[in-house]
Design a protein around this nucleic acid. Structure first.
Lengths: 210, 210, 210, 210
DNA sequence: GATGAATGAGGCTTCATTCAT
DNA sequence: TATGAATGAAGCCTCATTCAT
């Protein structure tokens, strides 16, 4: 009569702990001991649930991406149907008011971009995540084009540009907030997309700031 | 009678070695031994010229920023006078053909954004560098506005947006190149700036790609 | 289910190893590796049980003092009641026959006096130990005074003088034995205390030597 | 036409610097660099004048002892003739007012006692110094005995006891001053010597303190 | 599942000493 | 004499990982 498995629980505990520590000290600075402490577990147990530190990193990245995806879909779900509003919501979601409510996730995301440079598996997970968002945006744009709301050459290029802008604003927000005039991020991003897509109706004023 | 000082040379040797290694393995992954080897020196000597690894990191960041600044100015020098051409050149410099001729510097730059999250001195140097570029761009925009070539609300916000876009493209280029349709970066950035500034004349077609 | 803790054992193992090595090579000369070897452990494990080399030093000093205290009390316990005999025993314990049966402890004690000069925590532990012995002696003297066996001004001063003499003989014994005429230490100390306290009965002839 | 040698000068500069640093950080803690800085020289030059760090240590000990000897003789010179006054002066010199005017020398002396434990040459120099003082004291006592001023068994034992007491007070003064009641050291030492030598006239009240 | 001991490798740094100038 | 560069050897400590219980 073995005790019921709690591996799933433990694994999230651990990845959450990992994220907390990594946000503060970076990947190499996050020792298994620290992670364990943050997860209120012991170091030995961490290795019972994960084969190696590297696996924790991958799992954490996975969690981060999954959570982001869910939240994004939740936010956009309400806008189904109108590409302009959807694009608008998408930008606000990333750059509008309260966009960076989760600074640890933001920090980790930036750190993962660095990890992607030296680890193949991180790179591919990271790239996949970016590609997925780009695809999501591209889809919206295509719909807009199909409905005659947008014009412009390549939806993929435009999507890619928006992803880049968002990613860049993330970096600025996390490292050099003072470079971003208060509240300008979402608005500027929208105007930039206007330049790319010439929408039939203007993208809405942002109700927030970054 | 004493041996002439060669500290300056040695220090650049070391920071260059550091950059090479850090690009490949990250900051923590760059051991003093590796750095020394890359600089063709002994590990002990590295500490003779730098008080600590951290100092090397700061010096390397400093070098990187200085070099970028010089190259940027050299590129823009030829365009003096016309804000539109200057903005154009500025975008091409960062995102146009051959923009990423120095992949090691690019990788380090991204890694430094991560380091900025956990180290105050890196953060301030990094932020200062970004701010300096933003200021540079802002100046150009102001000139354009003064000459009636640009219109639009805040030059600072627009500059910040361009910096974000460039930074974001850097990340994509280094980690997820496949997300950027070939050659779209500079063009998209220009169209985005068009959306922000409504230039009297169109920003030029890019002659390159990212 | 977990392995039972053996930290206490390990810690004494380590402090004992430390004392052995320190006696031979001094504090700085006692490398963690050497200490580990002397304790038949690995270097890594030493740091598992002690946060730093400095903590080992403090623990060792603590052990040394505790052991000395126990032995002293054991020796004196038999004399309870008669201050003269107790003082006599106290001197014999420190300077009489077989007093320096533990040359490693003696060496470490002297080395600790040096360490006390540059480390606050060592100093305070060292001073506390000396003060405790002085207090012990002072108490005996007060009893003697109360019983009309001793006369003389300050019991504290006399106690302090005896502590100094003992400490000084320790140094001589460990570094310059030839300066001490065979067997003279305890006897001289007793006559010196006679000069200070004018005891009703003479302090006994020592049965040993230093 | 070689420049005039300044080796002697330099060597004292260096030993003085050494003493300053060693007093603060111990022998191992005194790096050649620190010593050089304290002597306002460069590290390389230190090795030009001394073959090794160890030689500096010996030279410094030698200087210390020489200086102590000179000062002691100067102080005692005035008392020539009367053993009681001379003994008195000798005790005051070591334990009386202003005795520890040179705390660096005191600290080094204590540290040297530790070094003596692990280095043969230090030990022999240290022991020689102690023996020399003991001999000096012994001489005075013998004179006193010859003049019928002192009585008691072994002048050597008494001398040794006084040396021990002084040395012990040094340790207490440097590490645990609070254990010594203000001003009691010299007085107690004198009464102790009274106990050992039964002088015809009392040893004088000390005019100082320790 | 869980704990805590244990290992062994490796990293940063310090430093005495040597050497070219 | 004097300087400052250079070397190479340790040393302390951290840590991912394994293992006995």
């Amino acid at each position: 009569m073995p005790r019921p498995s709690n591996t799933a629980e433990r694994r999230t505990q651990i990845t959450q702990g990992f994220i907390k520590i990594m946000a503060k000290r970076g990947y190499d600075g996050a020792s298994i001991g620290d992670i364990a402490k943050a997860a209120r577990l012991t170091a030995g147990l961490v290795h019972y649930h994960f084969k190696s530190k590297h696996e924790i990193r991958l799992a954490a990245l996975h969690d981060l991406v999954a959570q982001h995806g869910e939240r994004l879909e939740a936010r956009i779900a309400q806008t189904k149907g109108d590409p302009i509003i959807e694009l608008d919501a998408l930008i606000d979601f990333h750059l509008g008011l309260g966009a960076n409510a989760d600074p640890e996730a933001l920090a980790c995301w930036i750190l993962f971009s660095g990890e992607a440079l030296r680890d193949t598996r991180v790179r591919s997970a990271f790239a996949k995540a970016l590609a997925s968002i780009a695809r999501r945006i591209s889809m919206v744009i295509r719909q807009g084009v199909a409905q005659g709301l947008f014009e412009g050459p390549s939806p993929d290029a435009a999507a890619s540009a928006l992803v880049a802008t968002i990613q860049g604003y993330f970096v600025l927000a996390a490292t050099s907030r003072e470079v971003i005039p208060r509240g300008s991020a979402a608005d500027c991003a929208k105007q930039m997309m206007t330049g790319l897509l010439h929408p039939a109706r203007p993208l809405g004023r942002s109700q927030g700031r970054t």
